[in-house]
Amino acid sequence: MDYFAVVLLEILYMIAFLALTSAGLAVVFGMMRVINLAHGEFVMVGGYTTIACYRAGIDLWFAMLVVAPLVVGVLGLIIERLVIRHLYGRMIDTMLATWGLSLLIVGLVTLIFGNSAVSVQAPISSYEIGQYQMGGYNLFIIAVAALLMIVLWLVMRFTRLGLVARGAMQNRDVAASLGYNPGRIYMWTFTVGAALSGLAGGVLAPLTGLLPSVGSSYIAKAFITVITGGAAIITGTLSSSLLFGTVNQIVSFASMPVVGEIAMLTLAIILLRLMPQGITGRFFKNSA
């Protein structure tokens, strides 16, 4: 029974992890059809910001929940203005340019922080289920991911901002003819996406530890979660996180973590072959 609870919690954590790390990418892909290969580096920069702030004496909670999203959001804004906006409509070129950006950011962070791992103590202590020791911080991650999804849904569904965003997503020309500048909408969308990635990086920093190259371990998972999910931001992210998180952890428990990850990636390839439009392109067509 205890074991069952542990497995369930680990599955929940993996789902939360996937939803959290892919939310930023999903917003940008869903609204703008832009695939940002520097996404993993945005998450990484969020983590480094958190740790740098913590070392400078700023409260850890404040650093991860406020400073990290702000810093990465500004970084996203700068990148959108300098690079991305010149490439709208050219998907492959955008992928290439953002891949270049990702290498560039890795190089910069290596220059500043060096190539050794840094970490910070998780601020919530562990607890026990029967004979098993569980990380209390994982519960916090699950809560943050759930909250983030609910807030995203509320904003998209009930605010004027969400209405404009959904309108621009469906048809940018109509949105433009109603007086909303698509360029401006895209700019803020990219900024918000980057800020969400920064939040993910900040919140996950105490768990994973950081290296300049850590972004590449996020990008693949976020990438498959978003693409498999399809264009609908929330439903898509949730359904594919649920699927991949469950598969990853069950296979991991049955054999080894590496096998779990390989199973998840293989499943992603098969799903993309069967449903090139993603899960939401196939099943939940009218969701946000």
Binding site: M95, I227, L265, A268
Partner: peptide, 26 residues
């Protein structure tokens, strides 16, 4: 698998990337 499945450019990018990653991890 990709070409007979008529998979578009972007998804092809993802699949080729994931194949490399699987091999790297393995």
């Amino acid at each position: 698998m990709m070409f007979y499945g008529r998979i578009s450019d972007v998804y092809m990018g993802v699949i080729t990337l994931v194949v490399t990653l699987i091999m790297f991890k393995f």
